[in-house]
Amino acid sequence: MELDEPLIDERDLARTYDGGAYSDPWAAVLDYQAVLRYASQHPNKGSHAIATALEIPRGRVRGWTDDNRKPDAVRGLETAREHGWLDATYLDPKFTALNTLVANVFSGGSIATETFVPSFALNHHDHRSHVIDALEATGVEYDFFHEGDDSRATEVRPTSGGTVLGRTLAVLGAPVGPKAQLEDFSLPWYLDEAPPEVREMFVLAYLANRAIHQRTKDTVQIQEERSKSYRDELAALIEDVAEEPVTSGDRMVTISAAAARSLGLQPRYRTPAEPTD
């Protein structure tokens, strides 16, 4: 994939919606576009004439032309386009934000199965988080949930455009629904051909949520109770970014001290002057 090529395919985003009378939601988008195009080219034609010419049920055409109704997929595409997500390329600031949020769905968030609204757990009580920066960069509004609840982590969720954002993240490979129940669990497809800075951003955002620092060592671990293939895949990605050893073991990915230093991970429990492993 070229660096200046948009990554999010309109057809894939449209197909995250229920097509209603259409088995393929993308077909609803194409029909809607055809109806509006025909109506603009034949302003004196009514819904009956348009329906006859395009062989689309008149009730559907009338809703689109007279009542200004739109298929859900069309509205979603319009929202994504307005926010600049459909034009985002690897090095676009919008994609940097989307990439960060995808990493956070994997490492500390979720996308609701029915609504597609994403939710992200915050590690900082004062809301100082790279997640907030990423949400603001995407252009959506957001709100905080479970604040002051000592039994739950504070969460941030997009409000305006939240369902479209979640669908966009899903198209990029973010898991939808409870991650523990997903059998086919692997890293996002776009990382395979991504430039180094995109892969690094994903890794750093992932580690911001999942890095476990050792009290007596400079190695860093990630606990992942997923398939061995996923742990191997994750370890390989981090090792590629760090250019230092990262290993995959039983329920853990271990980042060597050299790799941790390469990634800029600071020891959490000791000062740099203390002995290291």
Rank of each mutant, 00 (worst) to 15 (best):
D232Y: 00
D192M: 08
A242Y: 04
L172G: 07
M201R: 15
G177T: 14
K179N: 07
A236Q: 06
H213I: 10
D218N: 13
V198W: 08
A180M: 10
L234W: 01
P175G: 11
Y190C: 08
V198S: 11
V246M: 02
P188M: 06
K179F: 00
E183I: 15
V156N: 10
K179M: 03
T216W: 11
K228N: 09
A211I: 05
E239C: 02
R199N: 11
A205Y: 03
T168A: 12
G166F: 00
Q214R: 08
P175E: 13
Y230A: 05
L204P: 00
V241M: 01
T168I: 14
R157H: 12
R210M: 03
Y206A: 02
V176A: 07
L191R: 10
L169M: 07
P178V: 15
F185V: 14
A236Y: 01
T163L: 05
T216N: 14
A208S: 10
R215L: 09
L237T: 13
V203E: 06
N209F: 02
V156T: 14
E200M: 01
V164R: 13
L234V: 11
T163K: 13
E243M: 04
K228I: 12
Y190T: 15
V241S: 02
G173E: 08
E224P: 00
I212W: 11
P195F: 00
S186V: 14
A170H: 04
G173W: 01
I212C: 10
E224V: 12
R167I: 11
F185T: 14
V156C: 05
L237G: 07
E200G: 01
D149C: 03
A170T: 11
L234T: 13
T154F: 01
A242H: 05
P195S: 03
D184E: 14
P196F: 03
A170N: 03
R199T: 15
P196M: 09
L204Q: 08
R215T: 15
R226M: 10
S229A: 13
Q181N: 14
A208H: 06
T163R: 14
A194R: 08
V171Y: 11
E200V: 05
T159I: 11
E225R: 13
F202N: 03
T168S: 10
V156F: 01
R199W: 02
G148N: 05
L182H: 08
G177N: 09
N209P: 00
S151W: 03
E243Q: 09
A174R: 04
N209S: 07
E155Q: 15
H213S: 06
